[in-house]
């Protein structure tokens, strides 16, 4: 038994160990993880579909094609309309709030767990890293699925509007026509969607996790959700 030996410094855990613990946690909490991830998927799917729809519209108009049905006057105009910008901004806000909310909930219901881990000798940094890894993985996979769903939605909508012409002028890559607005292209929008989803998930989860990790364990364990 230790007798009045000075108290040593706690060691850092190897990265692999943190990775293992975070994946185990995701796996066992699979149902709950899926719901959180679905929140991210939905937000990004909405944003990407609106954005992509806009990209497709611009590309097709650049090519001189017109919507076969012409329901909206805007689709015949060149460039991004105010309404399109409005839609993209709105979907971005919905996406940010949705993801932040699902991550916040997912962390808050685990305050007791955070307190317990600290009782067992976890450093604050370890707790934050655990949530960073979990949310980064959830954010990336959720956003990737969301971006693909969103793209699919925009393509289907484009098919309805432009028919098979869509595939001849499909804006896969970024383009900068001389007299038109800059086009990001499908690939860049998907990548941006994934990046955004991941960043939002990581911020949305590590900020409350950091706050919980800073609390004395007694207080973290007292927190009722």
């Amino acid at each position: 038994m230790q007798q009045r030996t000075p108290i040593e410094e706690q060691i850092d855990l190897p990265f692999l160990e943190s990775l293992r613990i975070s994946f185990q946690s995701l796996k066992i909490r699979f149902g709950r993880s899926i719901i959180t991830t679905a929140g991210i998927t939905l937000g990004i799917a909405f944003l990407v579909s609106v954005w992509m729809n806009n990209e497709i519209g611009i590309a097709l108009q650049e090519s001189g094609r017109q919507s076969t049905i012409n329901t909206f006057e805007e689709t015949t105009q060149k460039g991004i309309s105010t309404k399109d910008i409005w839609l993209i901004v709105m979907s971005l806000i919905v996406c940010v709030v949705g993801i932040a909310n699902s991550m916040l909930m997912a962390v808050t219901e685990r305050f007791r767990e955070i307190g317990t881990m600290k009782c067992l000798g976890a450093l604050d940094g370890f707790v934050v890293r655990l949530f960073l890894l979990e949310s980064g993985f959830q954010g990336f996979s959720g956003a990737l699925i969301g971006a693909l769903i969103g793209t699919l939605g925009a393509v289907l909508l484009g098919l309805k509007d432009y028919g098979l012409d869509l595939f001849f002028y499909f804006p896969l890559f970024p383009a900068q026509p001389e007299d038109g607005p800059r086009q990001l292209g499908v690939i860049v929008v998907i990548l941006l969607g994934c990046f955004l989803g991941m960043v939002l998930a990581v911020i949305g989860s590590s900020f409350p996790a950091w706050r919980a990790a800073k609390l004395p364990p007694a207080e973290a364990m007292r927190t009722e959700v």
């Binding site: 230790q2 108290i7 040593e8 410094e9 706690q10 060691i11 185990q24 946690s25 066992i28 909490r29 007791r112 767990e113 307190g115 317990t116 881990m117 600290k118 009782c119 067992l120 000798g121 976890a122 450093l123 604050d124 364990p217 364990m221």
Partner: peptide, 28 residues
């Protein structure tokens, strides 16, 4: 007077905690 790292090490090595509501990690 202990640093954060020393407190973590203290909780880890010197003390064992038993709680009313067990406080087991549900995922392990």
């Amino acid at each position: 007077q202990l640093t954060q790292r020393q407190i973590a090490a203290f909780r880890c090595h010197r003390v064992g905690y038993i709680f009313q509501s067990y406080n087991l990690l549900p995922v392990r």
